[in-house]
Design a protein around this nucleic acid. Sequence first.
DNA 1: ATAGTTCGGAACCGATTGTTACACAACTCA
DNA 2: TGAGTTGTGTAACAATCGGTTCCGAACTAT
Lengths: 194, 194
Amino acid sequence: MARPREFDTDEALERAMQVFWQHGYQDASLPDLLDGMGLTRGSLYKAFKDKKSLFLLVLDRYESAQVDAGVAMLTDPANGDGRTRVLALFGGLVAAVAAGDHRGCLLCTAASSAAADDVEIASAVHGGLAKLQQGIEAAIADIEGIAPGDRLRLANTLLTQYIGLRMLARSRLPMGILEQSVEGVADILDRAAR
Amino acid sequence: MARPREFDTDEALERAMQVFWQHGYQDASLPDLLDGMGLTRGSLYKAFKDKKSLFLLVLDRYESAQVDAGVAMLTDPANGDGRTRVLALFGGLVAAVAAGDHRGCLLCTAASSAAADDVEIASAVHGGLAKLQQGIEAAIADIEGIAPGDRLRLANTLLTQYIGLRMLARSRLPMGILEQSVEGVADILDRAAR
DNA sequence: ATAGTTCGGAACCGATTGTTACACAACTCA
DNA sequence: TGAGTTGTGTAACAATCGGTTCCGAACTAT
């Protein structure tokens, strides 16, 4: 009935996520996206409406890929006890930076930018972070010695730590913080568990 | 010999800081700055060279005003013991947000934006954060029961916590984290001191 | 008075922003 | 094969960006 699409929508979305992840919502220019996605203006607007709609799809993809993977790791008993799983989350973060990944967290970057003024974007960002929050809380619940009443507060502390570290990862600042952050988190966990 | 400046340079710089604080370096447009500072293009370029030079002056002002004030509070024994001083830092942060201040941290915002690619800006940002790091470490040194070898790591953990909280403050997300963050920090301190 | 400097303000620069319009190509279905 | 439909590619859009340059007016110091 009509001409078929010459590119794979899913793959284009994946590439768009990489561009937004590196540059943020506003600082990712349309030429940046077109280059990264490998298509032209006409195709992009035909397939994804406009820049904001594309970003909302990317946020959704990020949540169902990156965030859900982290939550799955935090909640799967096969990965060890709760303490091990939490430390694995932060260890993965440090390892990524050591490997040259300075993109930080797509959600955190969006949350602190002017993009957060948009209701739909803010809502999507909030959903992703809340999901991560619950993942951390679930892992904490699998650590012995931590009172149930302390779980939420501790989870919030760790989520804040996670956000701070990902911002530092993005900054490329030689503060020497990331290198010993896992030990710092381990201290928090071990001293909370008594 | 010449016509005197009709505006106060210091006051203009203060207003410029407010604009950059709220919008970040890139997202603060020239009209934004002109409106906020209450002067015209000709005057701004005559007095401050260009946008980047103005921002560097603002970063310097931020460090010698906001950061130094925080460090002074962290290091002055008149404000109580080290624990009290650290908690006051975070308490002030929470109070500011509760009062409607969602500007976050000028240094943190700059650090995570593309402005950090500029060497001079990155250097100034690093200097400010390092100063804060040392202030926190000094306060920790005044807490009994914390081994000297643990101070730096604990200071880094708290600085990360501080950065994360200020990013959350900027996001306006209703995560319910800021409200109980002081208790979370108190837990970290109390459990580290044994 | 005069030389020197800064003022506010407008005009303009080239570049970039996200978006739209349109002609053409490609495909399916009858 | 031809009609109908949709994607592709490119040009052009209006708006804004940061930055620069000009101007007559205002003012001070010599």
